[in-house]
């Protein structure tokens, strides 16, 4: 397993403990940041990730994740957009293995790639990756060319097709720009877990710092078999799945 994690995560096992980051379990906030954590720029000493255990995740769990995301960010209730025009940050997928016939349900959102194609193609640097691995759209720079949507292998991005008002206070969104899962960056920066993770009351979804050897996600990834969707593209996604 360790091979799919980044080279860096073992180099810094010794220093990681100083940051007083404890395990983050889904639903419970265990991290205690230093009081001034929000004053300092995020660094690449962390890489946020998520591990989704499809064997333990029920369909109701997945629906709950989708609802929690909608509630947190306000997407999906666009008045005029129809069908595929509506924003969709996280969706429930059902896939069937052609050989075994096994059907798996899983939530699919932006995979927060380490080598994100959406960032590579964006002409204006609006698509960007934070130092800690969270991929965002800087809507101040987005011109709405939608090239990033062409490039994303996971169909994770949405274009806002109409005027919006009364946005959620932590999630500015507007017509003519592209958006996608932010990994609830506004919560993560406060030391909280993303809304979808919090909505699942079990360890079926684990969120945390992939690099931190003491984190639950790191330790679990070392133990269990996990996979990235379209691993063949070598994007080294931050969202991992086990059981698919």
């Amino acid at each position: 397993m360790s091979k799919t994690l980044n080279r860096r995560d073992f180099i810094k096992t010794t220093t990681a403990t100083t940051a007083s980051v404890a395990t983050i379990a889904s639903g419970i906030t265990l991290t205690t940041f230093a009081a001034n954590a929000n004053e300092n720029p995020v660094t690449n000493e962390k890489r946020w990730g998520m591990l989704i255990d499809t064997n333990r995740l029920t369909e109701a769990n997945i629906d709950g994740m989708v609802t929690a995301c909608k509630k947190e960010h306000g997407w999906g209730s666009e008045a005029h957009s129809t069908g595929d025009q509506k924003s969709n940050w996280i969706r429930k997928l059902k896939v069937k293995d052609k050989a075994t016939g096994k059907v798996t349900s899983l939530p699919l959102m932006c995979q927060h790639c380490e080598e994100p194609p959406c960032v590579d193609v964006c002409p204006t640097n609006a698509s960007m990756k934070r130092e800690d691995g969270i991929v965002l759209v800087d809507r101040h720079l987005c011109i709405g060319c939608r090239y990033c949507m062409m490039a994303c292998p996971y169909d994770a991005r949405s274009f806002v097709h109409e005027d919006l008002t009364d946005q959620k206070e932590d999630m500015p969104r507007g017509k003519g720009t592209v958006e996608s899962c932010t990994l609830c960056v506004h919560k993560v920066d406060k030391g909280e877990a993303p809304a979808c993770v919090a909505s699942v009351n079990s360890d079926a979804v684990i969120f945390g710092d992939l690099y931190d050897a003491n984190s639950k996600i790191n330790q679990t990834l070392k133990k269990v078999q996990s996979a990235q969707i379209r691993a063949d593209l070598n994007l080294n996604t931050g969202v991992r799945y086990s059981g698919i």
């Binding site: 002409p123 204006t124 640097n125 720079l141 987005c142 709405g144 060319c145 274009f159 003519g176 720009t177």
Partner: peptide, 17 residues
């Protein structure tokens, strides 16, 4: 989506793109 931001396209370049 935002033609009014043409100036952004002319001033912000991502040379990887």
């Amino acid at each position: 989506g935002r033609p009014d931001r043409l100036i952004v396209a002319m001033t912000e370049y991502n040379f990887k793109s």
